[in-house]
Design a binder for these strands. Structure first.
Lengths: 208, 208
DNA sequence: ACAAAAGAGAACAAAAAGAGAACAAATTAT
DNA sequence: ATAATTTGTTCTCTTTTTGTTCTCTTTTGT
């Protein structure tokens, strides 16, 4: 049994990473498009190599066939540690509870706590002066109270979630953006519900 | 069996430190890029020396071959935890090569590339306007060239490593801080050596 | 100044990867 | 039903990448 070549490995990784986004076994054309290959014949050779390697098996559910991952590979994948749940993006105006887990993200221990945490992607520039940019990921510790000066995920009027500095007294809750172009918002404590405290932040520079 | 030369040792260290970031046996071209060597022929000599030293062995899994670490070397290495090597801090004035791996850090896939990467902790405020703060961690892809406008780890005069924006022409290399209080530095291309390109950034808010 | 080490670059054969055409069976549309 | 499209499969041909070997220049240490 031969070891995989570079391209074969890429094809396999693609299959593994996307195996649950395919409703039914993907066709060669679909895969070509996803992998950036023009010719089905070329891809076919790679698939055959993966079958020979026992990583993928022909699918016998219907006459036309298709392929799927070996049961063993699927199990391996599902036993892998998942990391923190990635919930979606914030500042889109939806409460966190309403958002389903979209996936999982492996996060360095230094960016999380030993309490339950989740990951959000930041939309908008409301925290740029705190070094949190549009598109950044933030790690949030799930809790319902915070100290003054912390950055929190706050749900306003049970409808809109935002990431802001918090400053609270008995009479009012101040939500302060870190952006000179935006204004602080003042609420009655009953109007604001804390959904978590910022414990980590991450940014990718992979695509400029 | 001869003792290794300096460069051979460097090549071996590179292979050992990154052997799990290679999906399959790395090609000479890949290694050249990672090590900053232009000529495959040059690298080939080093590889042959490592094979002669028994640290690396030709890989017979597929026709085209390739190389991999000796099983013995892998076992020595695999007792270590996974993740990216954490090298230390930057802007301390020491070249990266001089710094030993201090530990390993698990990093989200989105913050790294499929090439070998390492993690540094940032000291100082030279990049605050790019949202990179004192104490942040940065993920660096190990490579020896960069596009203009990218943020790089640059080794100046073989003695001092800094994190800066780069702007290079045939005559000069500009290293631009992201801090209005600091000035850009201009060097002759020979004075500057690129040690990697920024691909990710992380910050912990756990202790204010 | 000398020798060892390191690098650049060209050349070459083999392997890998890809394009594209062809065809029959299966599927879908009309 | 027939026609049109999509599927897996097989084939040849071309391009790209790979390991390997060479010669020549540059760097480095003594």
């Amino acid at each position: 049994m031969n070891i995989l070549t570079r391209r074969q490995r890429e094809v396999f990784n693609y299959l593994r990473d996307n195996h649950d986004s395919f409703a039914c076994p993907p066709s060669l054309n679909e895969l070509c498009e996803g992998l950036g290959i023009v010719s089905r014949g070329s891809l076919y050779k790679h698939i055959m190599a993966l079958i020979a390697a026992g990583l993928v098996e022909p699918f016998t559910g219907n006459k036309q066939g298709g392929i799927r991952l070996t049961q063993q590979v699927i199990e391996e994948d599902s036993t892998l540690p998942k990391g923190l749940p990635f919930i979606g993006s914030i500042a889109a105006g939806k409460p966190i509870e309403a958002l389903a887990t979209e996936g999982y993200m492996t996060v360095p221990d230094a960016l999380k706590t030993d309490k339950p945490c989740y990951v959000l992607q930041v939309k908008g520039d409301s925290m740029i002066e705190a070094g949190i940019y549009d598109g950044d990921w933030v790690v949030i510790e799930q809790c319902s109270c915070a100290k003054n000066g912390e950055i929190v995920v706050a749900l306003i009027e049970k409808s809109e979630a935002t990431l802001k500095y918090i400053q609270q007294t008995a009479e009012q809750v101040l939500l302060l953006p870190a952006n000179a172009n935006m204004t602080a918002l003042s609420y009655h404590p009953d109007q604001v519900e804390i959904q978590g405290v910022l414990v980590g932040q991450m940014r990718s520079y992979r695509f400029h």
